[in-house]
């Protein structure tokens, strides 16, 4: 075992364990905090995959914004969030079966693929992936269209969300 492998194993146990807490814990605020732990673990994985920009972006977007938005939403719907009864619907056993079957199927499918255990290739040191990403995002023969469409998507999400949530009466 190399040190990197040990770090990977610790991180993945952390990610999966806290993900399990997210889907099972009764207290919704706790679920949101466990979600933060899980997403932070994913950021650590990005660092190990040498995608440093994605790692910090993950922390900024998911922990800094999405998690806070979720906690706000939980606080705004208090009567339901305080519900201490069972938090799962009656057919949760089926959910377990479906999830387990999907996991088994995915693993089987992936292990039959010949690129399954590719070793990690050397990263060419001359190109800075960050600068590459920046160029690709605004270059016409790369991703400029998705880039602008993402902006429109976010704009429509903003307008739609304000329209739905905003209610002058309760303001």
């Amino acid at each position: 075992m190399t040190p990197l492998q040990i770090i990977f194993l610790i991180t993945s146990v952390g990610i999966l364990g806290s993900a399990l807490m997210v889907v099972t814990t009764r207290n919704l605020v706790h679920a949101a905090l466990w979600l933060v732990v899980s997403l932070f673990g994913v950021a650590v994985l990005y660092v190990m995959l040498s995608a440093a920009f994605l790692a910090v972006a993950q922390v900024v977007i998911y922990i800094g914004a999405i998690a806070i938005l979720m906690i706000f939403a939980i606080m705004l719907t208090r009567r339901v969030a305080k519900d201490s009864g069972p938090q799962t619907n009656p057919n949760w056993t089926w959910a377990v079966v479906v999830a387990a079957a999907l996991f088994g199927g995915l693993t089987w499918l992936l292990s039959s693929w010949n690129g399954f255990s590719t070793p990690i290739p050397e990263l060419s040191s001359r190109a800075d992936p960050l600068s590459q990403l920046g160029q690709a995002l605004v270059s016409p023969n790369a991703y400029v269209l998705p880039f602008e469409v993402a902006s429109v998507l976010l704009l429509s999400a903003l307008i739609g969300a304000i329209m739905v949530a905003w209610d002058r009466r309760s303001g």
Partner: peptide
């Protein structure tokens, strides 16, 4: 730096 600010907000 921005990311750490986000964590302190949490």
């Amino acid at each position: 730096i921005v990311a750490l600010g986000a964590i302190s907000t949490l």
